[in-house]
Computed example of a mutant assay.
Amino acid sequence: MASLDSPDPRASFRAGLLVGLPFAVAGGLLSLSFGVIARDAGFSAVAAITMSLIVFAGSAQFASVAILAAGGNPAAAVAAASLMNSRFLPMGAALAPSLPGGRWKRAAQGQAVVDSSWAISIRPDGSFDRWKLFGTTAPQFLTWQLGTIAGAFGGDLIGDVDRWGLDAIYPAFFVAILLPELRDRDRIGVALAGAAIALALVSFTPPGVPVLVASVAALWGLRRRAIP
């Protein structure tokens, strides 16, 4: 295992900021659409903004709002959000050895994990550069809040989010995260297996289940890494 910290934490943080900017722009547009959709679903502007501030997870937020807008109860919305965010459990387990301090300090640092920052901060040896992770997340957190505020208060001006093509940003966002990982042949196989599992389940399972089950494909990658 490599050293917990980068030799130059400031440089790692700045590098994270730069690489996180494109994701921050995309995230800002996504949260803009979330603010509009949440208001259309009956949320107050304050409720939509508070949800983005506390949850800060697009898939969970959109799933919860969709359930509530369809007449579902709050318990079902919370369950869906929890299921969507369950992917952070294995991600956090992988990150934990690269974080210094006791369990509470590591837990606090782990709040900076989002999909893009987690993927970008992985080192070749499987450890994580925590300062790069912090830097990548920082602009995304800022634009996620600003986008939600703009959508929650300016929804009448924005109108139908599909008209602006904002619905296409979400899949493009995750493709951009995945592409750098596909330079390794084994990772391509894992990605294709995960995609096949998710596609097979998406039509008849609740939101979050396809992503969670598809993560089983990553076990093959772990097996390959364990073979000397």
Rank of each mutant, 00 (worst) to 15 (best):
D5P: 00
D5Y: 05
D5E: 02
D8Q: 11
R10H: 05
R10Y: 07
A11R: 13
A11Q: 02
F13V: 05
R14V: 15
G16R: 13
V25S: 06
A26G: 03
G28S: 11
S31Q: 04
L32C: 03
L32E: 00
G35D: 06
D40T: 08
G42N: 03
S44V: 08
A47V: 07
I49Y: 07
L53C: 07
I54T: 13
V55D: 01
S59A: 15
A60D: 07
Q61M: 15
F62V: 15
G71Q: 00
G72H: 00
G72Q: 10
A75S: 13
A76I: 14
A77G: 04
S82I: 15
L83V: 09
N85L: 13
N85I: 02
S86N: 07
R87S: 00
L89I: 01
A96R: 08
P97D: 10
S98K: 06
S98N: 04
L99C: 02
P100F: 06
G102T: 10
R103L: 13
K105D: 10
S117T: 06
W118L: 13
I120R: 07
R123L: 10
P124R: 01
D129Y: 08
R130K: 07
W131N: 10
F134P: 13
F134G: 15
G135F: 08
T136V: 15
P139S: 08
Q140E: 10
T143S: 11
W144M: 12
G151Y: 01
L157F: 07
G165L: 00
L166K: 02
I169M: 00
P171F: 11
P171I: 05
A172Y: 00
I177L: 02
L178T: 00
P180S: 15
L182I: 12
L182T: 07
G189H: 13
A191G: 05
A193S: 14
G194P: 04
G194C: 00
A195R: 00
A196Y: 11
L199W: 09
V202T: 00
V202N: 03
F204R: 13
F204V: 12
F204G: 14
T205W: 00
G208Y: 01
V209R: 02
V211R: 08
V211G: 06
V213Y: 00
W220R: 12
W220K: 01
G221L: 03
R223W: 03
A226N: 01
I227R: 14
P228S: 12
